[in-house]
Design a protein around this nucleic acid. Structure first.
Lengths: 153, 153
DNA sequence: CCGAGTCGGTTGCGAGCGCAACTATTTGTG
DNA sequence: CACAAATAGTTGCGCTCGCAACCGACTCGG
């Protein structure tokens, strides 16, 4: 078989891992976003800010952006909206007057404590379709790829 | 320990699988999108259309939307742009005059045959960080989740 | 056949996002 | 100390996308 008559290489999108990962991540997001939106009126950036600030009180927008890997403008707008809804509060930092400390308000904490169990439960439901070994193998794969792409924290 | 004094459940975003999947899919996409854009001037929707139409000549926009899981307007716009660049051609279907058959043009095929090996090579590079067993386990996990969420085809 | 409902595909519009530019502050260097 | 460069955060702008509405074509029951 000569080079000229070699069959064209083909690419089946349905078997192409980058595509499948995107589709999967999207499916999982939809699975959750419905809850955030309908029940709490949060979009994804806002939910991520809530989760981050809820876990680490008194952090900066900077910190949120770094740990969620969202663009700083996206974070800025999410925070502004959450502040308008009085779910978070901001205080100017004492040692750096550019930065502002972000924390959950009382009602923000209330929402957070409702939100977390629901999110964890949905994650558990999702992962329940994998057996223990399958789950472990899957997570190892994710972890290795994260390190390879330098995505971890 | 009473219910009142139970520690608040917390949620570490960095350990939350839906978030990690999103971040990973995004990282992988970036890894590829640079090539599509800089070398071929394609954005992601356009690249997906090229891949789909390259693998199955004479399909409809409908078919592309279904197999890429993109919204039909996104497909419509991607096709329009590709047609303007003369990478694909459209012919009105004989049996249904609403639908139009989509196929790669000569230059479209040329681009496709350049594109495919590069994409497959990048996928291989990405997956090369996983050992054979790790890769197998990872793919099984993806597959199971796809079925669970009914994402396959 | 003829009208209602469906289906393939396109388009107007508003929302969300990233880029680049900006303000205000801090840090580093000669 | 002064001035340049870096940093925290915000905002104007243009682009992309999804929703809903729409157009033309098909279909199926009466």
């Amino acid at each position: 078989m000569t080079a000229r008559s070699m069959p064209e290489q083909t690419l089946e999108l349905a078997a192409f891992v980058p595509f499948r990962l995107n589709r999967l991540a999207d499916g999982v997001s939809q699975h959750l976003a419905v809850v955030y939106r309908k029940r709490f009126g949060l979009d994804i950036p806002q939910w991520r800010v809530m989760a981050t600030v809820g876990a680490k009180q008194d952090c900066t927008a900077q910190y949120v952006a770094a740990s969620t890997r969202m663009h700083k403008t996206r974070v800025s707008r999410a925070i502004a909206e959450l502040e308008a809804r009085q779910l978070i509060e901001r205080a100017s930092s004492s040692d750096d007057r550019r930065a502002r400390q972000v924390r959950l308000s009382r009602s923000g904490r209330r929402m957070y404590s409702e939100l977390v169990p629901i999110a964890l439960e949905r994650e558990a439901t999702l992962l329940s379709c994998l057996g223990p070994d399958q789950l472990a193998g899957f997570l190892v794969g994710i972890e290795t790829l994260e390190r390879f792409l330098r995505l971890e924290d």
